[in-house]
């Protein structure tokens, strides 16, 4: 695990993001996927003076059509992916998180692990980063609001992370909680908010142990910007985006299904599972189509939504005996 502060980086080392991306593609084109070689490719991006993001060392994803962790669909620019966010802790407008999240301090940070595990406790982020091996995954992210983006994440498998805590047989579900810190999170101070803070989400244990479930600590080769859920967030690509909880401070293992924030606000709109499903429409939005962002007015990139966001092969088995219309 290598974290370099911008001041450590020589100007001669600075590579424009576009060049870095091209170089990465070139390496993959040669079949030099670093995973195969068992080495991490140090990724150096340009260090803008105010950019607090740090470069991460990770194994790039293997660019192979059969690799579920990879897609060749177009990713938005980093600027686009970090300026169009739902993170109500910082305001309800899509541009609010980018404007308001600079107030958040993410260092020091630790994740409190509780409940049905042999090794509960408070895990500092530095320790987590030392223990986990970072890899890249390029996933589709489908928001319940009928838009989607393709994001190159950096992080580690949730299953590997959970195994570290040795869950007991009572662990049937895992509940995640976002930071609650009113003085740093503007949206939590709003008198008009419908959300009862802190924000919580949950997964069934077998969902959490699925190989697609991912804990992200970075995107576009660097640590996460605050608006995208720094310093550590969940990514479950077969579910609507609100399941992919941001800025996680607590994981609680339990035998009882946890109640999630959106379920508490509108149980008829948001279910526990929230799997991407074009056949079950949301009271507010038809889920049959999505706008793949960035879009423009001339090419609105309106595409058909896929069952499980196109990850059916990996996750359909989790729900084979369930009525997905009732368990939305």
């Amino acid at each position: 695990m290598l974290i370099r502060t911008p001041s450590d980086i020589l100007s001669s080392e600075i590579t424009p993001e576009s060049v870095y991306l091209k170089r990465r593609q070139f390496m993959q084109g040669l079949g030099l996927g670093a995973t195969a070689l068992g080495m991490g490719l140090p990724a150096t991006g340009f260090a803008a003076s105010e950019d607090p993001r740090k470069s991460l060392s990770f194994s790039p994803v293997v660019a192979n059509a059969d690799n579920p962790f990879y897609t060749d669909e177009k990713t938005p620019s980093f600027a686009e992916a970090s300026s169009y966010n739902n993170f109500y802790e910082f305001g309800t407008d899509k541009t609010d998180p980018a404007k308001n999240s600079h107030t958040l301090t993410t260092d020091p940070w630790s994740v409190q692990v509780e409940g049905a595990v042999a090794k509960p406790g408070s895990y500092p982020l530095e320790d987590i980063m030392k223990l986990m091996t970072l890899e890249e995954r390029i996933y589709r992210l489908r928001c319940v609001e009928a838009w989607s983006m393709v994001i190159p994440w950096v992080g580690f498998s949730l299953a590997d992370f959970i195994k570290m805590f040795e869950p007991t047989s009572d662990a049937k579900y895992v509940e995640f909680t976002t930071l609650y810190r009113r003085n740093e999170m503007k949206g939590q101070r709003s008198a008009f908010s419908t959300i009862d803070w802190p924000y919580t989400e949950g997964l069934r244990m077998d969902e959490a142990m699925n190989s697609l479930a991912f804990m992200s600590v970075g995107m576009y080769g660097k640590t996460l910007p605050n608006q995208n859920g720094a310093p550590i967030r969940l990514v479950v690509p077969w579910k609507y985006g609100f399941k992919s909880i941001k800025s996680i401070v607590k994981m609680r293992f339990t035998s009882v299904r946890p109640k999630t924030s959106w379920q508490s606000i509108a149980p008829n709109e948001y279910g526990f599972y929230a799997n991407v499903n074009p056949e079950v429409s949301h009271p507010r939005w038809s889920q049959a189509y999505e706008r793949r962002l960035p879009s423009s007015l001339l090419s609105p990139s309106r595409i058909k939504t896929e069952m499980f966001n196109g990850y059916g092969e990996q996750v359909a088995g989790l729900y084979k005996d369930m009525n997905l219309r009732r368990n939305y």
Partner: peptide
């Protein structure tokens, strides 16, 4: 001028 943001439709 394409200044309607990432999701101009919205």
């Amino acid at each position: 001028t394409e200044n309607l943001g990432t999701d101009p439709v919205k």
